[in-house]
């Protein structure tokens, strides 16, 4: 069962990461940003925006399945820790730099997400499956 959760968390992170990478490529290809129909047509006229849709839909259903079975705390953390995978992939794929500010900021944010995950775990311990579907 542990392996099932782990796989679910990884799948959730994978879908979220796919969505963010796709958003970035879709946005870059649709530049310049303008509040116009032309911009919308550029966004929806190339395949990456649909990668973002797939990532979102996939993440949604994985999240719903996880909430049914997995503890809420780790699920919450996993649903937000894609910042780590997205950062690493942006350095690799888009030649972005891990500046000091981004590194320190990321550490604080990750620590915060872990705290919030622990808080959720604690709160839901006595009635683990009391209201999982409300998210």
């Amino acid at each position: 069962m542990k392996r099932f959760y782990l796989l679910g968390f990884l799948l959730l992170m994978g879908f979220d990461t796919l969505a963010q990478i796709s958003f970035k490529v879709a946005g870059t290809q649709a530049l310049p940003v303008e509040a116009s129909l032309a911009w919308l047509l550029r966004v929806f006229g190339q395949p990456w925006v649909y990668g973002a849709v797939i990532g979102y839909v996939g993440a949604f259903f994985t999240w719903m399945a996880l909430l049914k079975h997995a503890p809420i705390g780790p699920a919450f953390a996993a649903s937000h820790l894609e910042v780590v995978s997205v950062m690493l992939l942006s350095i690799w794929l888009f030649d972005e730099q891990l500046t000091l500010a981004r590194g320190l900021g990321a550490l604080a944010i990750i620590a915060g997400i872990v705290c919030l995950g622990l808080a959720e775990s604690r709160e839901h311990e006595p009635a683990a499956d009391a209201e999982p579907a409300r998210g």
């Binding site: 958003f23 970035k24 910042v83 888009f94």
Partner: peptide, 12 residues
């Protein structure tokens, strides 16, 4: 938003 700044910064 993401098309205007680096992705690593955007997600943070």
């Amino acid at each position: 938003f993401l098309s205007l700044i680096p992705l690593s910064e955007g997600v943070l």
